[in-house]
């Protein structure tokens, strides 16, 4: 465990000592600000109309849920850039020799790197609580669905990061790692598109595979173990494949 913490610290050090973390958080906040403002204006406009013609309005379902849902798109573009360096950079600079000849297990290295990347994302998300806080100041949305939505975001991020790390472990070249990761992410994003043209069984499989489909319930405030298990097993698979890839790299030399 101490080793995991040491690796995590080192990863955070790499993010926060270089411009990576600041550039990423900065642009994330700009994008999030936009993703947040647009539905907010829309929501405000709608509620003004409702004043004359009352109907059901729900801030959680109509504003916060969609905003956080849209936020997942940012992951798609940002995460390949976070994960591309996890292994590729170590391989290129030779520091992988230090890690692999130290008395620590591969699993500890992988977990350390994974937690480091996840903490970077959590730091990004934490700043969006300001936006949510503003809503609480002027209104009184339900807090529980917000918590589940954030939980969903973190779980989904874990999946992307685990997968991205696996791809990074396959190559020395960071650009190749980023491109391949982006392509795979995008594929998983849109894999359910073709489900409407396929038979019911295939449809169910494709929808199950899609990372985003599983997020919907979290945004609605539902914690369904089905989705939690999906995300956790996806993460475990990604980390397992990374471990196998690092190990096989050893044998191949």
């Amino acid at each position: 465990m101490r080793n995991v913490i040491a690796i995590t610290q080192r990863e955070l050090n790499a993010y926060f000592r270089s411009p990576i973390a600041y550039v990423m958080i900065g642009f994330f906040l700009i994008l999030f600000g936009y993703f947040y403002s647009v539905p907010l204006y829309f929501f405000v406009q709608q509620s003004a109309q409702m004043g004359q013609n009352p109907g059901p309005m729900n801030m959680n379902q109509q504003l916060i849920g969609p905003t956080l849902m849209n936020t997942t798109v940012i992951m798609l573009f940002f995460f390949p850039l976070v994960t591309m360096r996890t292994y590729s950079e170590e391989k290129r600079s030779g520091t992988i020799e230090l890690l692999l000849t130290s008395p620590i297990r591969d699993v500890e290295i992988i977990l350390g790197k994974f937690i480091g990347a996840l903490l970077l994302y959590i730091a990004m998300l934490a700043l969006t609580l300001i936006h949510i806080g503003i809503l609480f100041y002027f209104s009184d949305p339900e807090w529980k669905p917000i918590v589940t939505a954030y939980l969903g975001l973190i779980l989904m991020a874990g999946c992307f990061l685990a997968l991205g790390m696996f791809i990074s472990s396959l190559t020395k070249n960071q650009i190749v790692a980023a491109m391949a990761t982006f392509a795979v992410f995008l594929m998983l994003w849109v894999i359910s598109w073709i489900s409407s043209f396929t038979g019911p069984t295939t449809q169910a499989v494709l929808q199950y595979l899609s990372l985003t489909e599983h997020f919907d319930d979290f945004a609605k405030g539902i914690i369904d173990t089905k989705h939690v298990i999906y995300y956790l097993s996806f993460m475990a698979l990604g980390l397992f494949l990374t471990a196998k890839s690092v190990d096989s790299e050893r044998w191949r030399g």
Partner: peptide, 16 residues
């Protein structure tokens, strides 16, 4: 590994 110190051909340093 606990009992081995290793200096590879290129020193494995983290530039940051």
């Amino acid at each position: 590994k606990r009992r081995t110190g290793y200096l590879p051909e290129t020193p494995p340093l983290y530039p940051d």
